[in-house]
Design a protein around this nucleic acid. Structure first.
Lengths: 225, 225
DNA sequence: TTACACACGTGATGC
DNA sequence: TGCATCACGTGTGTA
């Protein structure tokens, strides 16, 4: 459509129309206003042209937004056939998840610390019954016999491994265990003491002489925020 | 505003208005159409009410989308004072970056993959003497009994663990072993076969019924290419 | 003034 | 039908 199709649009009719539209705001009848202090037709033309460029600009804006949305849709699996709000909700979830994961990664990566450490803490629910639940964080030099020694020691203490997270990096190893001791006569205190002794012994046990760590990775790369 | 405020809106005026609006589509004058085969006022009321609920629903939709957008804005640093398209572009960048980082991390960290896998390869020097050296990469669902089963199985195969790297994350576990079999009569081929059978059995062994992974994340993020 | 960004109400369309 | 989503053109505020 070009401007000439507006040539029959007379001032009177515009006034009538505007007046009606103004009185009936609920109809949301949107007419470009006609300035009263300038000649009529050029102004209408200008208004119309402005309106068109406005709508075109708005379309470009919408297209920019939708382009990013469809990019996001490709990045997030299982987001096909989701509406915009749903897609964005998934995006929020995934960003949160990725951030948490990255944080956890750096925690895990931090893990094999350079100094031997043994941290033992009881879980909250440990005092409720005769089951003792402890969480153990344990760092030392890595070596082949470590696992069998750990298994043997934990077995001797009648401890069951509920959960284990073991990371070995650069010749160091960090183990995080959730251990459970069921129906034992010893106290939590004595159990923790025995555990501490066991782990200290394992940590300071001499390494196999001919054991050489194969892959010494650059740890700083992993620790960047 | 209630419907009574429309009481002066006469059919004639609506016709005139509709006619004008139809002839001047470029004005985008949007009136609810009046069906010709029903009484006038109720229909107008109904149309108006429908129109109002429509616009209200649309507002709710916009609000839902904008709520997610502002959540995203909080999640993405330096996205204040960005327009919607810019914000979404940052989100896309951020997600891509985080995914790449996670992928990198999982490569470096040997993060467990979502599919069970068993990769067995001989080390180069294995053919030189009667010692067989194999490197095993093994991924499966994590569970408490895994370690003891692995130890038992490897012991039965007369395999010594030279090096072990074990990572558990999100309910999955990945083990990388360097295993040595000294002075055995079996061939490398049969050893690898036995090993593969063992690991496949362990990987598909049913999990302890009451064992629940603590954090069940949407893991596909780490695996997306 | 121009240019841009956002919210709004509406028609179209799919279930 | 009614209810949901989307694209559209417009009014409005801001720089």
């Amino acid at each position: 459509m070009d401007d000439s199709s507006c040539s029959e649009y007379l001032p009177e009719t515009h006034e009538i129309l505007s007046s009606w539209c103004h009185n009936l705001q609920e109809v949301n009848c949107q007419l470009p206003l006609i300035p009263t202090n300038s000649c009529y037709f050029p102004t209408w033309s200008q208004e119309f042209s402005a309106s068109r460029s406005h709508s075109e600009a708005e379309k470009r804006r919408r297209d920019r937004i939708n382009a990013q949305l469809s990019t996001l849709r490709k990045l997030i699996p299982t987001s096909e056939k989701m509406d915009k709000a749903g897609l964005l909700r998934s995006v929020v979830e995934h960003v949160k998840d990725l951030k948490e994961r990255a944080k956890e990664m750096s925690t895990v990566l931090n893990t094999p610390s350079d100094i031997d450490e043994v941290i033992i803490e009881e879980e909250d629910e440990s005092s409720n019954n005769n089951n003792i639940l402890v969480k153990v964080s344990f760092s030392c030099d890595d070596r082949p016999e470590l696992f069998s020694e750990l298994n043997r020691g934990l077995k001797n203490l009648k401890l069951t491994t509920i959960e284990a997270n073991i990371t070995s990096l650069g010749g160091r190893i960090k183990c995080i265990f959730s251990l459970q001791s069921i129906n034992v006569v010893c106290t939590t205190h004595s159990l923790k003491h025995s555990l501490r002794v066991l782990l200290a012994r394992i940590a300071t046990s001499p390494s196999t002489p001919n054991f050489r760590i194969k892959s010494k990775r650059q740890r700083f790369f992993l620790l960047a925020t």
